[in-house]
Design a protein around this nucleic acid. Sequence first.
RNA 1: AUGGGAAUAGUUCAGCAAGGUUAGAACGCUUGCUUUGGGAGCAAGAGGCCGCAGGUUCGAAUCCUGCUUCCCAUACCA
Length: 490
Amino acid sequence: MAKVLTDREENYSQWYNDLVLKADLAENSAVRGCMVIKPYGYSIWEKMQAVLDGMFKETGHVNAYFPLFIPKSFFSKEASHVEGFAKECAVVTHYRLRNSEKGGIEVDPDAKLEEELIVRPTSETIIWNTYRNWIKSYRDLPLLVNQWANVVRWEMRTRLFLRTAEFLWQEGHTAHSSKQEALEEAEKMINVYASFAQEYLGIPVLIGTKSENERFAGAEETYCIEALMQDGKALQCGTSHFLAQNFAKAFDVKFLNKENKEEYVWATSWGVSTRLMGALIMAHSDNNGLVLPPKLAPFQVVIVPIYKTEEEFDKISVRVNELCNRLKENSISYKFDNRDSQRPGFKFAEWELKGVPVRIAIGPKDYDNNTWEVARRDTLEKEIVSDENLISKLVFLMDDIQKNIFRKAADFRESRTYTADTYEDFKDILNTKPGFILAHWDGTKETEEKIKEETKATIRLIPQNPVLEAGKCIYTGKPSKYRVIFAKSY
RNA sequence: AUGGGAAUAGUUCAGCAAGGUUAGAACGCUUGCUUUGGGAGCAAGAGGCCGCAGGUUCGAAUCCUGCUUCCCAUACCA
């Protein structure tokens, strides 16, 4: 087989890049750091959006849309928020171009904006400024709003899907009348993300909270889900923040409670992005290409005809079209690859590269025997299936592949989850076979920073319900009550 | 931003040291024939302001200067 991918073992990040390009998911654009998401990649994102959007609505949220631009003055109102994002903001300073004397066009210096606009890196500020007018009474709460949008963060170094200057995401912004209710909301949404990751992406995730260092700028608590990629590095897949009254205070959002007393509103925000595409790619794919979970594949089955003559093709097409109707009835999505320009072998390799969960081939032999060749992408196993058993086989495979790729990822994570009691062990694991490391930590920012400097590993999360176990911090030897999860991360 | 490297066909690159006619290859693309159960073969063809601006020279992809952009390493994270 002609190779188009770099082997995963040889160069993991090269493998990832090749895969994104060759599977036709996305490519770099003429704009530095910004990607073009191609139709095949975008249709996976659309599937993710559809499922998540349904989950948000089921949990009582509604969609709205807020502006792309944020006045500079809004941005500075929440101190730690500015600090967190200031270094990576795109800023609009002018509103007009003019013809240049040197030819071409230039920014018209007379068209300077009175107040500069920030291209949103996240929308807390513009949304909370709006909420001030929406919230007057406890009767206006809770306010449960989600937005699907693009945001811009001027990243130095970008990688397709994992870190791009512009990315697509959803951001939920909720307002509550009590601390307790806001905390519950933040936890509820991280659990929504976790079940989406596990049931749809087929990626096992750990749920927990961030250490102070890794917390969102402006949050009092950040909940997160973390997954382990095949190279042993962690990927943050989603976050949900308890913002306390920080934004309500910054934007003066108050409500009258039942006792007719004025109170500041409690807030949360939560988001997942096109980075989930990166997670999906890295969690399951192999040296032959992408491996997609049936629940998110643009189509679940591809049908490849094998024929010599036009008559043969016509005969086979009739039978394939009958099959397509049966697939439709059974809600299995499909593509009949009837291109005459490519040979079967080429198509096999191409669809494997694109991760289609099941491939069905039919040639003269199958036609005569009334059978189909069925190949599953996750294990690459091939099987001849009789026509009468085909649909039930496919229904079984959709479920089985979904479960199998989750199980494989879970087994991998298990085999790469360690406990370290000494700093030497800790460093040794990171150097030899990285993964999640459970270790004791003294709870200080300084220690986490030292460990990060020396090993590049950070605390990915503090487990939700940690097993209480007295121990000593691997770095300082100070007492610790439970272990936290360390890893190198993306 | 600092340090290092690069810019030539759609893509990956050769050519540059020692300047000299119509600037090459592979892959991809187009057309035809042939083939089709794991990325076929043959033939013909299209495709380039050699990153931009200036300089040296009879002559510049090649030498010199300036600029721009990209890539690799460090900081950032959804």
